[in-house]
């Protein structure tokens, strides 16, 4: 199985997704099954093949290097979960509990 339970928990942390134990087991199986279908690519010789990151035919047109104003019909506060004095308010970066978990 190409993906282990530890892999799932690791990438879930990287992606900031909480995954409980039963779901981690399911995802281990699901991701392994999906990735097993990708193995076919390893048989393709791509040693001299350039990679493709985009398919904009003829390249992308250049435009003057000036900022474009963001025209918004409403204020940030109309959709932000929490704002004060024009700033987005978020929880503290770390609590004592976080600190003890990371050993900091």
């Amino acid at each position: 199985m190409p993906v282990t339970r530890e892999d799932v928990l690791h990438i879930a942390e990287l992606a900031r997704l909480g995954v409980d134990a039963p779901r981690a087991d399911e995802l281990t199986k699901e991701l392994s099954a999906i990735l097993s279908h990708m193995e076919v690519l390893s048989q393709v010789d791509t040693a001299t093949v350039p990679t493709t990151a985009g398919v904009a035919a003829g390249g992308t047109p250049l435009r003057p290097d000036v900022g474009v104003p963001a025209l918004m019909s409403g204020t940030l506060a109309s959709f932000a979960p929490k704002m004060r004095d024009g700033f987005f308010i978020v929880p503290r970066l770390a609590t004592h509990e976080d600190s003890s978990e990371s050993g900091a």
């Binding site: 900031r16 997704l17 909480g18 970066l93 976080d98």
Partner: peptide, 13 residues
């Protein structure tokens, strides 16, 4: 209520 990282994870999950 457990900090920023916990908020990210709870929101996205």
């Amino acid at each position: 209520g457990k900090g920023l990282k916990a908020m990210y994870e709870a929101t996205r999950s």
